[in-house]
C-alpha cells in the first residue's frame, strides 16, 4: 500500500516537473525528490489564472483555467503526443458489438462524427447493411476500426504516423501523416478515411491544439480513423459511440480485467463469458489481423430489418 502511494506520487511529480522545467526555473533538483510538499509547491507555479481553449467531451471548444488541465497531466501538444503515443498502462481495450440489438438508430455514427469533427460522409464508425447468404435475413452491422492486434495499416506507414499503442488502440497522428494513403489501401476493413478537402468547420478549430487521442482538429491531406475514443478512456469513460447507442449494442472494456460494460445499460459482465456464451466472432478472421472488436451473431431479433422502406437488400446494397 505504502509502495503504491509512493509510485503514484512519483508519477505526479513527473508531470509537475515537466512544467517546472519549461518555466526555466530548474536549479538542480534531485531525481529522488518525492513528497507532497514539493508536488504542491510545483502546483503553485502553474497557478497563473491563464485561460486556454480546450475541446470539451462533446467536441465543443471551451475555455478552461490552465491549472485545471494540470490534473490530467496533458497540457501541451507535445505532452499529449507523448502520452497519446504511449497508451494507458496495463489495459487492453476491447469492444463487443451485439448484432442482435442493432436497429440502425445511427446514434453512434452521429455522436462519433460530432466528436471528431467529421463531415456527414466521413465515418469512423459506419453501420452497414449486411446479407449473409440470401436465405437468412439481412442485418445491421456497425463497423468501427477493428484495432487489430496484427494491423495491416500500421505496418506499411512510412513515417510512423499511424501506430499501435500498448493498450491495443491504433491511432493516427495527423500532424505527421504525409497523406500517402498506403494505410487506407492496406486496411481490409475500409476503416480509414481521408481529408480530401478542408475539414468541417476548419475556422472554428484553427487555434485548437491537436489532441492525438481525439484526433481533432482534422487536417486537410491527412488520414483519419476511429480511435476508440482514446481521450474518453483516459477519463474512465466509454467511447462516444458506445455511450450514444440507445439499443444496448455496444459492450466496451478491458480484456486484461475481463470486464466489459454495456454503453446503454451500464451493466458490466465478464468479457470472456460474453464471448463464449454467444458464439462471438471477429470479422475476416482468415486474414489473421486479430481484431479487438468482436461481434455477437444477429440472432433472436424481435424487430424487422428495414432500410428506406425495404425489408431486403435488393436495391440498397450499394446505394447511399
Amino acid at each position: 500500500m505504502n509502495e503504491k502511494n509512493e509510485n503514484q506520487k512519483k508519477k505526479e511529480f513527473k508531470i509537475s516537473r515537466r512544467d517546472f522545467l519549461k518555466k526555466g526555473l530548474m536549479a538542480g533538483v534531485g531525481v529522488a525528490l518525492t513528497g507532497s510538499g514539493i508536488v504542491s509547491a510545483f502546483d503553485a507555479f502553474a497557478q497563473g489564472g491563464e485561460k486556454i481553449k480546450v475541446l470539451g467531451p462533446d467536441g465543443n471548444v471551451m475555455s478552461v483555467d490552465k491549472s485545471h488541465l494540470k490534473e490530467i497531466g496533458l497540457k501541451t501538444e507535445e505532452e499529449m503526443q507523448e502520452s497519446g503515443r504511449e497508451g494507458i498502462d496495463g489495459k487492453r481495450f476491447v469492444m463487443v458489438i451485439d448484432l442482435s440489438k442493432c436497429r440502425n438508430a445511427r446514434k453512434c455514427m452521429s455522436a462519433c462524427q460530432h466528436a471528431h469533427q467529421l463531415k456527414p460522409e466521413q465515418h469512423h464508425i459506419n453501420v452497414l447493411r449486411m446479407d449473409r447468404a440470401g436465405d437468412t435475413s439481412p442485418f445491421f452491422m456497425p463497423k468501427p476500426c477493428q484495432h487489430c492486434e496484427n494491423p495491416s495499416c500500421t505496418k506499411v506507414c512510412p513515417v510512423d504516423a499511424t501506430f499501435k499503442r500498448k493498450d491495443g488502440i491504433v491511432l493516427i497522428d495527423n500532424e505527421r501523416c504525409i497523406g500517402c494513403r498506403f494505410c487506407i489501401a492496406a486496411c481490409p476493413y475500409s476503416a480509414r478515411i481521408f481529408n480530401w478537402a478542408d475539414p468541417k468547420d476548419k475556422e472554428k478549430y484553427e487555434d485548437v491544439e491537436y489532441n492525438i487521442e481525439l484526433n481533432v482538429p482534422q487536417k486537410k491531406g491527412t488520414v483519419s480513423k476511429c480511435v476508440f475514443s482514446a481521450n474518453r478512456l483516459r477519463e474512465g469513460k466509454l467511447p462516444y459511440c458506445a455511450s450514444a447507442c440507445p439499443n444496448g449494442v455496444y459492450w466496451f472494456g478491458d480484456a486484461n480485467e475481463d470486464a466489459v460494460t454495456n454503453g446503454t445499460t451500464k451493466e458490466t459482465v465478464s468479457f470472456s463469458n460474453l464471448l463464449k456464451n454467444n458464439a462471438a466472432y471477429t470479422l475476416l478472421p482468415e486474414l489473421g489481423t486479430k481484431p479487438s472488436v468482436y461481434y455477437l451473431p444477429e440472432k433472436d431479433r424481435l424487430f424487422p430489418f428495414e432500410y428506406k422502406g425495404q425489408s431486403d437488400m435488393e436495391d440498397n446494397s450499394h446505394s447511399v
Binding site: 506499411v156 512510412p158 513515417v159 510512423d160 504525409i178 491531406g221
Partner: peptide, 29 residues
Amino acid sequence: IIIFDMGRPDRILNIFLHGRLQSPIVWDL
C-alpha cells in the same frame, strides 16, 4: 508522380525524420 499523389507534400521530409524501415514506401524510395 509519387509526390503529386501525396496529401501533404510539404511533409516529405518526415520520411527522413521519422522514416520507418519496415514500410515498403521507404524501400521504394
